[in-house]
Amino acid sequence: MLDISLQIILNGISLGCAYALITLGFVLVINAIGAVNFAQGDFVMAGGFLTVVLAEFMVADNFNPIRASGLIILPLVLISMACFGFLFSLIAYKPLKNRPPVTVFISTIAMGLIIQHSINAGFGPEPQIGPALISSGTITIGTLTISKQQISIILSASFLILCVGFLMNKTQLGRKLRAASQDSEMAESIGINGPQCISITFSLAIALAGAAGLLLSNQFFVTTSDGGLYMLKAYIAVTLGGWGRLDGAVIAALAVGLFEVIMATLVSYVVAEALLFAALLLVLLFRPSGLFAEAIQRRT
């Protein structure tokens, strides 16, 4: 009994960790441009498909009967998704940067449609399965049996989250990115290339989405229609965690993942989903600034 409940909790944490990566990217973009990237979920899905393709490709190349493991593919996915992100910001954000945020919302909805249905045209609607991060199988510690896949998801996601924290808080690039997010004009007046910073933020955000796609691709499969649901989870986590807060977003995303897995095991997946939306609506109703205080305040 103990190891089953521990199993469920680990499951929840690993899902929550993947959600945390998605949500981090989501918040970075919100802070940088004051608008929502509605295609974030579709980039998660795209990252998953990229993983599947890369895994197949590397098998054929090496005459190796075992598919390449996720951990080897991860850097490749991060780099290529970052390039996609840069391109994405040039298409969907740059031409609209002086327009109301709602226009960016729509352009990202449009990009999401294009991404989702292009991949659907190529691969079809059937679920695909990605490679395990290191290997499948379990570790036994005393009486506990833990799946290696989950532990490796949690470890790699935590590593990436810490990297983002380090990048944003301790490096010069991170300071520039934050400065450009807070006030693009002011940042430019002290010699920071604002538009470039925003494009870099997009790269970072979408690389994180891609990484989440890779992490989820083995256990949860990848389906072209998944994007919307991931986007919604990130959206919920951002709202719960306080609009614009990175730490709040990570904690809330973990909570969402845990809650989803526990409720799905105890009752059913549908109830878990419904309760999440209900919680979201209640938070919007009574505490629209999120459970944690809001980082960005609208100036009047």
Partner: peptide, 24 residues
């Protein structure tokens, strides 16, 4: 009643959430 006073992203999110509940 609860949703209309919300602003931009919140309004979009809340209406999307309601649509998802209806679908479920």
């Amino acid at each position: 009643l609860p949703v209309l006073r919300l602003e931009s992203h919140y309004f979009a999110l809340a209406t999307l959430g309601i649509a998802q509940v209806a679908l479920l």
